[in-house]
Design a protein around this nucleic acid. Structure first.
Lengths: 266, 266
DNA sequence: CCAACATTCAAACACTCGTTTGAATTGAGT
DNA sequence: ACTCAATTCAAACGAGTGTTTGAATGTTGG
């Protein structure tokens, strides 16, 4: 569905931004051409360069718009919690709510395009393009600094390096969950809705469990146990299954033929 | 560094595969051209089409080669553990070791290119290209089925849907950790090594904590409490977040100029 | 009305893309 | 030495890329 059809009233610049965001989600940054964007937005291709100057700048604008909203929500929520706490450190759960909770709320907001942007953001976090990476890093810096500090305060007994790593793991879990991740959704057998509202409580429970997990035993002697954490565990039972493995040759290499696989995308 | 320089003895087909894998990691699938690959491998561009037929088939071959190794290791480890357990249930920790531990071992193997492939795999898991997604899903199906069943058996009291979601979150955390994820590595302030050997124990502790976290309270009446678990329910009271709709001028729009950002990549 | 500006437009530009062609080269097997 | 198939090669093909141009529109204030 064209942006031009769903939002004919918006001005050219906004239509281009919307079309770009939606096509970036669907095909990726590289695979989305300026012509795809402008035709989807019912705009002239030169108009896009008039407004944004280049494809890279357009990409920047898309992410700036989305990140401004997300980061502002995050900082406002963190400010509110810290104000209410009145100097006492926040609980880890509160920090996660402010950081990941707001992202999940935005991801559930299908009406103003928040959901689409969050999927895009989740995918782009691992983009190899260096221009994208440095851009995202600078746009994220302030927010990450704030929340990292809040986590340090919330978990004073945990080594800071460990907190940084776990913040990193949590970001990965969320990015992946938001990205749509259809690659494994099939393989993993996920049936139901992909409504972030349904995912949110599950993800929050998971993240909190990971954040407060007992510290690992590291080779270099370093605080083998973590006294503050509760470290309760779910009891376990198990059964057995059998299977043989088979290698499977990579590909038949004949003379000339090299039948190409049925293409499906693009 | 060209593959042709590091492995001049390998045959054309292998050199192309190696060059493709390494360039895919560096630039992504779309941004890597057949000419980049063949010139890096000191091979003729037509030779690549002779051996693989098309770029998509070459991509498939790269992933097939890497996944064959990874999945075989995973299944062998799971088989070994289940054999040694002799019918008694595996512990969740053992299942995670077999699935994520082997991946991390492979990711630490810089010599045979395992590290490079794992980074590529981590990035590609969220690729929007549909051809890639369905391909990965089928290549992963058997392994995911096995481990999902093993987790079901290891956590009989936990609702299966919850286990599937947590398996999903764990995959995201690992993919992200392996992908190199420099986007936030800067912002998150990660200083030290990216040696997977250093990450492995941290990631395992995190994953295990997340997997065994207390179950979330869900809106739809659905097993609000989890009798088998040792409790410690995390109270996930619904958050209220108000959001003001502000567009936020994305960019100064002047006449004509639209100064383009300094390009850096590609 | 009209100048001055902001925006849109069709057309072209210089490249790069994946892929194909047909001839040259290599390497066994007889 | 000759054959025949496997492999490599330079060159080209058509399509698509981001970007630019210069003229044609609207749009606004004097």
């Amino acid at each position: 569905m064209d942006i031009a059809a769903t939002r004919p009233e918006a001005d050219t610049r906004s239509r281009i931004l919307d079309a770009a965001e939606s096509l970036f989600v669907e095909h990726g940054l590289e695979a989305t051409s300026m012509r795809m964007i402008t035709s989807n937005a019912s705009a002239n291709i030169a108009a896009a360069h008039y407004h944004f100057g280049s494809k890279e700048s357009l990409i920047e604008a898309v992410f700036r718009r989305g990140l401004a909203r997300l980061n502002e929500m995050r900082l406002r929520e963190l400010d509110r919690l810290e104000r209410e706490a009145g100097g006492t450190p926040l609980k880890p759960r509160q920090v996660l709510e402010a950081f990941f909770g707001t992202a999940l709320v935005l991801a559930a907001d299908r009406e103003t395009g928040g959901a689409q942007f969050m999927r895009l953001l989740g995918r782009t976090m691992t983009d190899p393009n260096q221009f994208i990476r440095t851009f995202l890093a600078t746009e994220y810096r302030e927010v990450v600094d704030r929340f990292r500090a809040a986590l340090f305060a919330a978990l004073p007994e945990v080594p800071r390096e460990e907190i940084i790593w776990r913040l990193h793991f949590m970001l990965g879990a969320m990015s992946y969950a938001l990205s749509g991740m259809d690659a494994l959704r099939l393989a993993a057998g996920i049936t139901g809705t992909d409504d972030p509202r349904a995912i949110a409580p599950r993800l929050m429970a998971f993240l909190l469990g990971g954040l407060r997990a007992p510290l690992p035993m590291l080779q270099e002697p370093q605080v083998p146990t973590f006294p503050g954490a509760t470290g309760k565990q779910i009891s376990t039972r198990s059964r057995k299954t059998k299977r043989t493995e088979d290698e499977g040759a990579t590909r038949a290499r004949g003379h000339r033929p090299a039948v190409r696989s049925t293409r499906s995308s693009k």
